[in-house]
C-alpha cells in the first residue's frame, strides 16, 4: 500500500491562507535581543538587513513540515481504518488553521505519511503520540524564532494542541 499524502489538507490550508495570511516569515517586528547566556536582555535589537536571509524561514518550514506530517498520519489512519467521527476531523481542521497562519508563500515541504499501525486502537495511539510530539516541536520552534510575533503564534499553536491532548 502506498502512503497517502496530505493533499486534502494542503488544499484546505491553501484556501485558508488566501483569507488570512499572517506572512510571519516576513518578520516585520523587532525581535527581542538574545544575550550570551540565552536569556532576555530586555531591549530589542536592530532588525536584520534587507539583504540578509529571513531569519525565521527555517523555523517556519520546520513547523509546517511537522504539522503536515501530523496531517498525513491522520489522513492515512482514516484511510486505513475508517476512523470517522473520532475527533480526528477537529484535529485536521485545527492543523489547517495553523498551516494557514504559517503559510509564507514558499512551497510546502514534502512529507510522506508514516506507516499506520495495524489496528484502529493502535492507530489512534499513534496519532496521539504524533500530536504530543507536534506539541513539543511547536513549543521548541517558538523558542527558536527571532520574531516575537512568530514565537507567540507558535506557542499558541502548541497550547491549542495541549488542549486537545488534555481531553
Amino acid at each position: 500500500m502506498s502512503s497517502p499524502r496530505a493533499q486534502t489538507s494542503r488544499r484546505t490550508a491553501l484556501a485558508l491562507a488566501v483569507s488570512a495570511p499572517l506572512a510571519l516569515a516576513a518578520c516585520d517586528l523587532d525581535p527581542p535581543a538574545r544575550s550570551a547566556s540565552g536569556s532576555s536582555s530586555g531591549s530589542p535589537t536592530a532588525t536584520p538587513s534587507a539583504a540578509a536571509p529571513l531569519p525565521d524561514a527555517d523555523v517556519v518550514e520546520g513547523a509546517r513540515a511537522a504539522t503536515l506530517l501530523a496531517v498525513a498520519l491522520i489522513e492515512a489512519a482514516q484511510a486505513r481504518h475508517g476512523l470517522r467521527r473520532s475527533g480526528l476531523e477537529d484535529l485536521l481542521r485545527l492543523h489547517a488553521a495553523h498551516l494557514a497562519v504559517l503559510d509564507d508563500g514558499s512551497p510546502e515541504p514534502e512529507v510522506e505519511a508514516p506507516l499506520v499501525a495495524a489496528t484502529p486502537a493502535r492507530a489512534r495511539a499513534q496519532v496521539a503520540a504524533s500530536e504530543n510530539g507536534l506539541t513539543a516541536t511547536l513549543a521548541d520552534a517558538a523558542g527558536q524564532a527571532a520574531s516575537g510575533d512568530l514565537a507567540r503564534a507558535l506557542a499558541s499553536m502548541s497550547a491549542a494542541l495541549r488542549q486537545r491532548v488534555a481531553v
Binding site: 525581535p31 527581542p32 538574545r34 544575550s35 540565552g38 532576555s40 517558538a142 523558542g143 516575537g148
Partner: peptide, 9 residues
Amino acid sequence: VASTTGTDR
C-alpha cells in the same frame, strides 16, 4: 512569549 527570549520565553 513575544517579548522574551531564551529561558524566559
